[in-house]
Design a protein around this nucleic acid. Structure first.
Lengths: 216, 216
DNA sequence: TCTTAAATAAGGCAATTGCCCTATGTAAAT
DNA sequence: ATTTACATAGGGCAATTGCCTTATTTAAGA
């Protein structure tokens, strides 16, 4: 018996792209697709014999988070995998809270998508490695989503984030240099740049701000 | 340049099994293996040029959770993937809290293990689907695992806690003195005493440890 | 009453940090 | 071809920090 999949996405082009990706696998049947949560709910009321729903987040009328919450309330047996272009903390956290069983990005390749669906049906969770890392960070450093944080986008380079991580452990310039196989001068330079980007003036402030923005 | 991997497992048979799994891939070099955390730490002190550590949890002398915590404190740039047969919530939660970058089960096949190492180095997190599900559940239902922490009972005075709170905001000695209507000398003295009680040597370490012990 | 813990305050010194300057090589973008 | 971003590296200097010493006052406990 093949897996019954439903798709919810307000972008018809992306629905088509998902269908195409799954067409390679004959153990998957796409039962129907909807352009928003409301449409999906109507279809489920008529027939809820569905194994997995691939759900977009940003949609008109009823968005993916709200829809997930409702579907999970009424049909807890149906697995829901979020399939979206957005991977910000807010969305991930809210989707998980709403009861999502997985979270994949739209750029996922056919094999990964197929595997994700299978794993989810087998009692696991489908997740991008980058999403997985974000969930770990959320577990380690629970941020208060409800409280409005400044949204100013802070863009640190990979190296800067690495240095910041070391700073957060209370390590000195020289130890950080030793750890990253750099000259202390370079570490100092990176830290100067970090301070400028974060608009702070000390290690502690930098780490504080970085944690608030879930950079580390 | 191939990826430098270290293995820590008290079971020599399992070490051999992991080595065998990774032997198929020529972009991976196994630098050394240790039978417990203590042995690993000694080796890292000699040479910390390691990309990833595959870490067992149940080990004599120094277990995988404690070892992860120490390694991440001293060498935050080294990625650590837990590789264990146990997947209970306690272990997963504690490993994540200790700073693990991934969590795989020992039955993992060579390809998955290799992929997990690669993904982790690429800034993601390696995770079993079943583990991923458990992390989602932990996020949804935040259990307050009463961490035994260190048994050492740390008793700071009211004033010391006040000062520590100010420290954690990244304030300088003089500003703290001004805030608490004290002489900078007094603030310095309090901080010295805090350092001695917590057995640390800098603001950042003090704040870190205090947070771990729920003092602030 | 004597002792101890806590809070207060100060001086000195070496190491670290924060902030300014300049400079080079490389890779991506225009 | 040229700008731009990134990573690397170094020098200099004032301020801050970490750690040592000593000292007084007050409040709580033995």
């Amino acid at each position: 018996m093949s897996l019954k999949v439903a798709i919810v996405d307000d972008n018809t082009f992306l629905i088509h792209s998902i269908k195409e990706k799954l067409s390679f696998f004959d153990d998957i049947t796409i039962k129907h697709s909807s352009l928003n949560g409301s449409e999906l709910l109507t279809k489920l009321e008529d027939n809820h014999n569905i194994d997995v729903i691939l759900m977009d987040i940003e949609m008109p009328v009823l968005n993916g988070i709200e829809t997930t919450q409702i579907v999970k309330q009424k049909y807890p047996q149906i697995k829901i995998i979020m399939l979206t272009v957005f991977d910000n903390d807010e969305n991930i956290f809210n989707a998980i809270k709403a009861g999502a069983d997985g979270y994949l990005l739209k750029e996922v390749n056919p094999e990964q998508l197929h595997k994700g669906i299978e794993e989810t049906l087998n009692g696991g969770a489908a997740m991008n490695p980058s999403i997985a890392l974000k969930t770990l960070k959320l577990l380690r450093n629970p941020i208060d989503i409800d409280n409005p944080r400044d949204k100013e986008d802070i863009s640190l380079t990979t190296r800067e984030v690495e240095v910041l991580e070391q700073l957060s452990k209370g390590l000195s310039y020289t130890v950080i240099a030793d750890n990253l196989f750099l000259s202390p001068s370079t570490v100092r330079k990176h830290i100067e740049n970090i301070y400028k980007k974060l608009q702070v003036h000390s290690k502690m402030e930098a780490v504080q701000k970085a944690k608030r923005h879930n950079i580390i």
